[in-house]
Each structure stands twice: as C-alpha cells, then as structure tokens.
Amino acid sequence: MSIDSVFVHKIWNDQEISKMVDGGVPFPMLSDAGGKVGTLYGIYDDNGGVDTRGRFIIDPDGVIQGFEVLSPPVGRNVSESLRQIQAFQLVRESKGTEATPSGWKPGKATLKPGIDLVGKVWEKWKTNMAFD
C-alpha cells in the first residue's frame, strides 16, 4: 500500500515488476490516497507526504501480532517476516503453551513457559542458539 493511485500501481506492475516476478504482483496493490490508512496505522509521514516502510503481521482474528517500520532507503527482509509468521503460527497452534526463544526458526527447540522453567532457561537455551 502506498499513496500512489491504482493507475500508477498498474503501470509499475505491468512495466517493471512483472519483469522481476512471473505473473506480476500476486497480491492486491492498495492505494492510500492522502495517507488516510497510513495515518490510521501511525506510519504516515506528514512532511514527505508518504507512507513510510511499515509492515504489520495480522492474525486470523484481525489482531496485530507484530510490526516493523523502516525509513525509505532500507528495504525489508522478507525471510524474517516469514520466520515471524511461522513463529506466531506455532504459538497460536500450541494455544500459548509454547514460546519461541531468540533465534528460533522452524525445526529449532521451543520453550514451554511455566513454574518449572523459572531460572532454568540457561539449561534449555544457549546464546549460540540466537544465531544461525
């Protein structure tokens, strides 16, 4: 979603993005005239008159589980967004009985928070697990 019109979205997709991605953008390219939605989400930049690089993860109940906002020159890390969604999905499926520690990715151990784990995280989780 950007402040561009759907006409500009069409030309950008058809002329440029479809040359990078087979079939073009596979999701709706939303138009936010005047930054009204960006304002609603707190990421509209009044001075530049644009939406900043905000990314929100919304769960099936419509609840915001995470967000990240970057200034214009630095692009996102899609793999990290996917990792976060996988982590939120795991937590949701476990009904909150499991948590994903720092550095978690699919296949790595989770933690089961509870009275027995208090003061014992050091036995289950080592700092090298924060890194790939």
Binding site: S2, H9, K10, V50, G54, F56, P60, R76
Partner: peptide, 27 residues
Amino acid sequence: AYFKGKFVNVNLSEYLGKWVVLCFYPG
C-alpha cells in the same frame, strides 16, 4: 487496489480467518 489485471476494492475485514501481511511503502 490493482490486483491481477483488475481494479478492485479491498476491505481488510475480508481477510479475517487468514494471516495477513500489510506492507506500506513510500511510493
């Protein structure tokens, strides 16, 4: 929105029941 060759109106609430990534960008 522009979506697969068409202009459409999108409501966020249509996506209830699914995981959604909402991305804003400068232009």
